[in-house]
């Protein structure tokens, strides 16, 4: 299945970062599953009309995060999910986003219940149900 990425220039998010975010989302939402092959660096670069090194950089970072893996000579594939980071590292990465969410919610006068409900709905979208 084609990887449907949109690149916008003139954004404050660099192109390689846009790619990473979008591929992550596609994998997280299960539209690509472990073992699915990603387009080659060349062909994705050609299709999105961006520098191949930008694609290579995004793939490299996704591979480092364990989202995809390269198989020698065969290209990149969606990896079987495994956690490559420690819990502390993961907490550290989540903290500023949580901060942003809560401060924005407070600024906009949302109640704790509103925020919890919205969060749970979003979690369900990603297949994460509260136990």
């Amino acid at each position: 299945m084609p990887l449907d990425c949109r690149i916008s220039t003139g954004s404050t998010t660099p192109i390689y970062r846009q790619l990473i975010d979008q591929i992550r989302l596609v994998v997280l939402r299960g539209r690509l599953t472990p073992g699915d092959r990603l387009p080659s660096v060349r062909s994705l670069a050609q299709r999105l009309v961006i520098n191949p090194n930008t694609v290579a950089r995004a793939y490299g970072e996704l591979a480092r995060d364990g989202v995809i893996e390269s198989q020698q000579g065969k290209g990149y594939f969606v990896a079987t999910k495994r956690q490559v980071y420690t819990r502390a590292h993961r907490r550290r990465r989540l903290a500023p986003l949580l901060e942003a969410l809560v401060s924005e919610a407070a600024l906009l006068d949302f109640s704790a219940d509103d925020v919890t409900a919205a969060l749970q709905e979003k979690l369900r979208e990603y297949g994460l149900e509260p136990s």
């Binding site: 690149i7 220039t9 003139g10 192109i15 009309v49 961006i50 520098n51």
Partner: peptide, 10 residues
């Protein structure tokens, strides 16, 4: 055209 540069330049 910085949009073009952003796309293709390394």
């Amino acid at each position: 055209l910085l949009g073009d540069v952003e796309r293709v330049a390394d």
